[in-house]
């Protein structure tokens, strides 16, 4: 078992939990710690208590765990819950009702058409994640742009742009094929400005949204790198 971070601040408990075994722990900014606190109070404190030590044998704030011995274990527990105990599976919305896997991947699950979310919790702040869910069109990052092209034989292909230059274009399409075309072989080539991602404002209730964000925040890549 790797050394645990000693964290006395309750506010940091949530992040501490998912960062305890992660190499990224030193880089948390105060606002991330605040995000973590909010999430913890909203989603975890009912059972784990405001100090993170209410579940017998588990002290989230001090890195005392019954089962987890690695960062990946923690993500797995938060994601899948602990069967037969009260610890819920936070990935439920993601994999179930939200149907996120239809377009996104996490590790080897889901579709690779949309951006991979396996480390989304490490590269986006909570507020950005919430916004992605409520207003997917508000800001589409450059690397997440979709394109639509029509080949000379009239076949239409939509996919996520991976690269382009003066003569060619590279993308991954909805069938998860890595495709490369000479622009001279295309009848049409255009950016799709509207995100295919639906808004979840009315699809999920506030509790489900909070669970989903907790889950996304916990996704920090393999080994938390």
């Amino acid at each position: 078992m790797r050394a645990f971070k000693l964290c006395t601040s309750v506010f940091a408990v949530f992040l501490a939990t998912i960062n305890t075994l992660s190499a990224k722990q030193q880089t948390d900014t105060p606002s991330e710690v605040n995000d973590g606190r909010q999430l913890f109070i909203a989603n975890c404190a009912v059972c784990h208590g405001p100090d993170g030590d209410s579940v017998p044998g588990v002290d989230l704030g001090h890195g005392k765990f019954k089962r987890a011995s690695s960062y990946d274990d923690l993500v797995e527990i938060i994601s899948a819950g602990v069967p037969g105990t009260a610890m819920p599976a936070f990935s439920k919305v993601f994999e179930g009702k939200g149907e996120c896997l239809n377009c996104h991947s996490v590790k080897n699950k889901g579709s690779r058409l949309g951006p991979d979310l396996a480390e989304i919790g490490a590269v986006r702040r909570m507020i950005e994640l919430e916004r992605s869910l409520l207003e997917p069109n508000a800001e589409i990052l450059l690397q997440n742009r979709m394109v639509r092209l029509v080949t000379r034989d009239g076949i239409t292909i939509t996919g996520r742009l991976l690269n382009q230059d003066t003569f060619s274009v590279q993308l991954i399409d909805s069938k998860e094929r890595l495709l490369s075309f000479q622009k001279s072989s295309l009848k049409e080539y255009a950016f799709v400005d509207k995100s295919p991602m639906p808004t979840y404002r009315d699809k999920l209730n506030p509790g489900e949204l909070a669970d989903l964000v907790s889950y996304l925040v916990s996704l920090k890549g393999i080994g938390g790198q």
Binding site: L142, Q143, N163, Q164, D165, F191
Partner: peptide, 8 residues
Amino acid sequence: SPAPNFRK
């Protein structure tokens, strides 16, 4: 270096 280009 030629980073991927996503620009319009």
